[in-house]
Design a protein around this nucleic acid. Structure first.
Length: 271
DNA sequence: AAATCTCCCTGTAGGC
DNA sequence: TGCCTACAGGGAGATT
């Protein structure tokens, strides 16, 4: 379940190993991801090099002079830097080999992820055109949430997971942020007060920033090893804890479904 | 426009 | 132990 912090940390972790080194080989073992990996991918990449590695929403973006390689990790994807000639294992779908000896290896058991090549301005592409602000940017703030939510009859949890409203808030962090803000997930977005949006906005930023900070301590894991950065050590207060006591009040945490997603909350702390 | 449903895929968990 | 089924989950795209 790579969420925004995992993508951000992956981005920071791989950049120093691949920046400004010519690509000398591209190996696609499995092209059937969420969308097909373009069959002319190598023609776009060979002999070129990454100028910048950045993130928009949960898309990891490798900028070249001629276009952008878009990588999405879906729910089970990961990227690792391999040094030298290490045999690929199951679900290692794409390798990008650099002149400096590094191999960027894309691994994704469930294949919900994507590897795409885009040219021209990203915002002109339909995947990026209608995305909301980044949660950690200044243009995501309580007043904005309040205004956008007026008249909306969708649950607050669905609202903050809507990428048109704000990007990168996945199921885990939506649950956590609502707990921190003390808001019941099923409350209709249009009925949440400005004061509570102030708390919620701060909670979203805090929980994501904290996870990124923790991810930053495990960057070394992106090179070699088993490729599993240690984010999940982050203590989650509600997600995955249904039936267990609330960390604040000891009440039994409740689990419901909202829009098909598992939702855990404290019936006493969240109103 | 907004809300809801469907689908992609496979590892894991639970039932028998 | 092993087989079978249900389910999770990001998010685009279709449908209501």
């Amino acid at each position: 379940m790579p969420e925004l912090p995992e993508v951000e940390t992956t981005c920071r972790g791989i950049e120093p190993h691949i920046i400004n080194s010519d690509i000398v080989d591209v190996v696609v073992r499995q092209a059937k991801l969420r969308w097909p990996v373009p069959d002319d991918l190598s023609s776009h990449l060979l002999g070129r090099s990454v100028r910048r590695c950045y993130r928009r929403a949960k898309y990891l973006l490798l900028a070249f002079d001629t276009g952008t390689l878009v990588i999405h990790l879906g729910m089970s994807g990961s990227l690792r830097i391999i040094c030298g000639d290490i045999a690929p294992s199951k679900h290692d779908h794409v390798d990008i080999v650099f002149a400096n000896g590094s191999v960027l290896r894309y691994h994704d058991p469930r294949r919900f992820g994507a590897v795409l090549w885009l040219e021209g301005g990203l915002n002109e592409h339909k995947l990026f055109a209608d995305l909301g602000p980044e949660p950690l940017d200044e243009d995501f703030y309580a007043e904005y949430m309040f205004e956008r939510s007026r008249g909306r009859k969708t649950p607050i949890k669905s609202f903050i997971m809507d990428s048109h409203v704000v990007v990168g808030v996945g199921n885990i962090y939506a649950n956590e942020a609502l707990f921190i803000a003390g808001i019941r997930p099923q409350t209709l977005a249009g009925k949440v007060s400005k004061t509570r949006y102030t708390q919620l906005c701060a909670a979203i930023k805090a929980v994501l920033a904290k996870a990124i900070k923790q991810g930053g301590t495990t960057l070394k894991d992106f090179v070699g090893g088993d490729g599993k950065p240690g984010y999940f050590q982050q203590q989650l207060m509600v997600y995955g804890r249904a039936g267990q006591p609330c960390v604040q009040c000891d009440a039994v945490l409740k689990e419901i479904k909202i829009a098909g997603r598992s939702t855990v909350y404290c019936p006493r702390c969240q109103r």
